[in-house]
């Protein structure tokens, strides 16, 4: 299956509903850490430009706080798109980026608790 289709299927998101208001990126608490921002995920998936997203660390930087999904006025849910790209990478490689047991070693004190919890969720799949 085509990567774009795969991500749309995994996420269940209709990226065409996006009206490019940028509220997702305005709302994102981890914006500065991300190379690609929530609105870019939606736009790049819509245009089929998936490779850069799959190769970016942004998919692991997303806190999965779902603030973008909660506040999107069009009900697009960008967080689900980010998660879908991440899952596509995991499925493609057949393995995780990190083992769950490795997670505590790479954490520093400044990282939000939410990211810590979400890291376990992401890496223990």
């Amino acid at each position: 299956m085509d990567k774009r289709e795969e991500i749309l299927r995994i996420s269940g998101v209709d990226v065409r509903k996006c009206m490019r208001c940028g509220k997702c990126s305005g709302t994102c608490p981890n914006y500065d850490e991300m190379e690609y921002h929530p609105h870019q995920f939606v736009y790049m998936v819509e245009t089929g430009n998936i490779e850069p997203l799959m190769n970016s660390k942004s998919i692991y930087k997303c806190l999965s706080c779902f603030a973008c999904a909660d506040r999107c006025p069009r009900g697009v849910e960008p967080a689900k798109v980010v998660e879908a790209v991440r899952l596509a990478v995991i499925r493609q490689k057949g393995q995780n980026h990190l083992k769950a047991s490795q997670v505590p070693d790479v954490l520093d004190e400044d990282i939000p608790q939410q990211a810590f919890v979400s890291a376990f969720r992401k890496y223990s799949k």
């Binding site: 490019r20 940028g22 509220k23 997702c24 990126s25 305005g26 500065d32 921002h37 609105h39 870019q40």
Partner: peptide, 11 residues
């Protein structure tokens, strides 16, 4: 106020 500037691609 936390907002996005889509043209500058900044928060």
């Amino acid at each position: 106020v936390q907002a996005s500037d889509l043209i500058a691609n900044e928060q």
